[in-house]
């Protein structure tokens, strides 16, 4: 199989590392060659965070360039808009509708663009928008948005449920496992906008 590329984007602290590791483990268990690229250090402090997951028969480059992503999963709406150029023609954009103001918006130097969901649709993106924050809070913590979105992704990919459950058990600490399984389930059955 030709290499496929998925980007996971969000704001530092939203848990994109866990999401990318979860997905990476599912794909490895499915028998693919897998590469997952993370960013650590300074950009984790509330900045834009981007991770890449690539899989296929043989994966070389760990990074995804503009026009290459088969799917983008975004934990925040502005980050979804920022990453649109990375989406391949016909690729899927799965985003949480959560909005987090970046510092230039907080200081009044810039404005958070309005109505991004419609604008992204108008730009031709195949959009799946989910209120992941509410579902995460329903599962028990606002921090589980990442796993809610992995649940949404699982409903769009054709892999056995068991692989996702195993990956959750591998990647999530035992004391948060039940909560995250619930978040995953809520994401899998989520209403999309």
């Amino acid at each position: 199989m030709e290499t496929r590329s998925i980007m996971i984007v969000g704001v530092g602290g939203q848990g994109s590392l866990l999401a990318s590791r979860l997905l990476g483990n599912v794909l490895l268990a499915q028998g693919y060659d897998v590469k997952v690229s993370e960013v650590h250090g300074m950009s984790q402090r509330g900045g834009s965070v981007v991770t890449y997951v690539k899989y296929g028969d043989k994966v070389y480059s760990p990074v995804v360039n503009k026009g290459e992503a088969d799917a983008i999963i975004s934990f925040e709406l502005l980050e979804a808009a920022r990453c649109l150029p990375y989406l391949k023609k016909g690729g899927k954009l799965i985003t949480s509708t959560q909005q987090i103001d970046p510092m230039p918006v907080i200081t009044g130097a810039a404005e958070y663009p309005e109505d991004l969901v419609s604008k992204l649709k108008a730009a031709g993106a195949e959009l799946v928008a989910v209120d992941a924050l509410s579902l995460a809070e329903e599962a028990g913590t606002s921090k589980a948005s990442n796993v809610v979105l992995m649940g949404v992704l699982s409903s769009l990919m054709d892999y056995p449920e068991e692989l996702w459950q195993n990956a959750l058990e591998q990647c999530v600490p035992a004391k948060f496992l039940e909560l995250n399984k619930k978040a995953f389930e809520l994401g899998k059955n989520a209403k999309t906008l």
């Binding site: 509330g46 834009s48 026009g67 663009p113």
Partner: peptide, 29 residues
Amino acid sequence: DQSIIAEKLLGEKKEFTSLYVNIPIRPPV
């Protein structure tokens, strides 16, 4: 990266879409 190499050596460029709105930067804080 792979795109830079493909462009410089093979003259290939990937197509992509942008959103024509001002997207504020999100620096680390």
